[in-house]
Design a protein around this nucleic acid. Structure first.
Lengths: 218, 218
DNA sequence: TTAGTATTCAATTATTTTGTTGAATAGTTG
DNA sequence: CAACTATTCAACAAAATAATTGAATACTAA
């Protein structure tokens, strides 16, 4: 009797974790925080709901220990609490991208809307970098790069790319990445570069995927 | 505009997956199905709610593509749809066992209630099996063993153990496993064996954990 | 075809969740 | 200390969820 009760409590606690990301806005919050720390106000703007609502969502995430807070001056900064959260989200995405026809359809629509053609994965990048000279560029906003980036990547935020083309070599293949499969910045960068006769290609994996891969190998 | 809308739809679909396991009963269903296929009626008994409710929960899981069905005679058999579901659940548990104080407390209560003392992990098992002679026994019900088991494990369901002690050697270390960290059968087996002067120890990982580990290595 | 049975559907009720607005709070900074 | 401000709390309405019971369905098997 007390046995089943204990068991039920454990399932209850476990489902509290998944409950925390069972809401689209909270899932989006976690995804945004995976890239970089943010204040409540910033997050509220990004997910387009009121500050009070955002705060409530963040508290759900916090009570499930998925995010943590730190004060900085007047602001409270939210961040992902642990890399195991990244793994959790990554496995949800894996399942979603693989099994849910609706998501596959959405991603294909997204790609064709944006004229996203060829792309490589992290594994492809490693393989190619052994055979040819590659320049890896991170086209996310500079703050996100500073908060963490793939080894050997150079920061060239998308909005600076046009002005900084002279920094880039025509002899190397340029690989651009941003926030992952659903981010359009790297594709835009590649389109610009290709129109200027650079050898450029998009990588669909981002910093988070690289970080998780690093850990696997240790 | 259509960009954010697409993004929102993706988060909505992703959260549908986590929503599916954001309920204790459904989490338990997935956990039960991780061991073995079941009919609706069997599942209903195991989670102690009505058949109609169980059916409805199963349909939520099915629409999120976490489980799938197959007819067998009069019965409809539910099973986990894909190993990526096991990975998802495993990452939820990892996060839960690591970060949620409440779960840690519950597990410790559980262990002390059951007098569960020493236990080893799969990694420990591999290491020890190179140094000494080990007999690995699977004490789950025979059906679960038949549905899948750790390589080289011998099936001795807990309720048969007493009668089959003569099959077991006193020279080897006996390692018993069942369904994982929250399953008490292996602990009971070890207690019985130790009282009969066997060298016995419990392994906290189960078949699911082993299966996921196998895949990692390929 | 008919009887039988496992499962699903429908309708209902109690409970929980989401998002809003406006007030309260806590902590910083001058 | 006092003013300021980012964040959280409280109260509410609308919507969604979980579980039950009883009826309907879909399939099997004789």
């Amino acid at each position: 009797m007390s046995e089943t009760s204990l068991k039920e409590k454990v399932y209850q606690e476990l489902s509290r974790i998944t409950h925390a990301i069972s809401n689209p806005k909270r899932m989006e919050l976690i995804d945004i925080l995976s890239q970089k720390k943010h204040t409540v106000e910033e997050l509220s703007k990004k997910i387009s709901i009121s500050i009070a609502s955002t705060s409530q969502h963040l508290q759900v995430l916090k009570s499930a220990k998925l995010v943590e807070t730190k004060r900085n001056g007047n602001f409270i900064i939210y961040s992902i609490s642990d890399d195991s959260v990244l793994r959790l989200v990554s496995s949800v995405k894996e399942l979603g991208f693989r099994k849910i026809a609706e998501i596959e359809r959405l991603i294909n629509d997204f790609k064709s809307d944006k004229n996203i053609l060829e792309s490589i994965t992290l594994d492809d990048l490693f393989a190619r970098s052994k055979k040819e000279k590659i320049l890896l560029i991170d086209v996310r906003p500079a703050e996100e790069y500073e908060s963490g980036h793939i080894k050997d990547a150079v920061s060239i935020p998308l909005d600076q790319l046009k002005k900084r083309l002279n920094e880039l070599p025509k002899s190397k293949t340029i690989v651009a990445y941003c926030r992952g499969a659903l981010c359009v910045m790297a594709a835009d960068a590649v389109k610009l570069l290709q129109s200027k006769k650079f050898k450029a290609i998009r990588m669909e994996d981002g910093y988070v995927e690289w970080k998780l891969k690093q850990q696997e190998q240790n």
